[in-house]
């Protein structure tokens, strides 16, 4: 399988998340009013891990929510209806600092949908974006505030994040589609 390449080992993933946790802490000194919001599926366990890490070194357990963006997607018409996931945010987002968490930042369209969804849920003071992988190819003027790893890719490649909570193991791999081999 030489079309499959590991780009993050479990240890590297852990270190990247610890660094992101510290950066979130540093940027938002005191962590007042910060809420982590994961985008399903894999953004949610990532947000929980970041919260647990921050709790370890700051003793503050940040609230974690999850935001399903399916009903806000701009490609519903083109690609047909996708299954809707759960949104569960126990806190009013107004006047909070929302840190959106997702696994991969690619075209930026998911984040665009998430920004619209958040606007319907409240009026945060500030929205920041944390991603484990930034693979480039943005189609919208969106950038991440916290990045685990920047990975140059071609559009024909797939970046797959595996998390032990969902996939049973931690790793990030990059795969080339058959046509490119």
């Amino acid at each position: 399988m030489n079309n499959r390449k590991q780009i993050l080992t479990p240890d590297e993933m852990r270190r990247a998340l610890v660094r992101i946790a510290h950066e979130i802490d540093e940027r938002n000194g005191g962590l007042q009013n910060v809420i982590l919001v994961g985008i399903p599926r894999r953004g949610v366990p990532l947000a929980e891990r970041i919260a647990a890490t921050i709790a370890d070194f700051e003793g503050v357990l940040l609230p974690v929510g999850q935001l399903d963006i399916t009903l806000y997607r701009d490609d519903l018409r083109r690609r047909g209806m996708a299954e809707v996931g759960k949104t569960s945010i126990q806190h009013d987002l107004t006047a909070k600092v929302v840190v959106l968490v997702d696994d991969v930042l690619y075209t930026g369209r998911t984040v665009r949908a998430a920004l619209d969804a958040i606007a319907d849920l409240g009026r945060p003071d500030c929205i920041q974006l944390a991603v484990l992988i930034d693979r480039g190819h943005r189609e919208l003027p969106i950038r991440a505030d916290f990045v685990g790893k920047n990975v140059p890719t071609s559009r024909s490649e797939h970046v797959m994040v595996h998390l032990r909570e969902i996939d049973g193991e931690d790793e990030v791999v990059i795969e080339r589609t058959k046509a490119e081999q």
Partner: peptide, 9 residues
Amino acid sequence: SREIKQVPA
């Protein structure tokens, strides 16, 4: 259940 009970789907 949200305050704004509308999505753009």
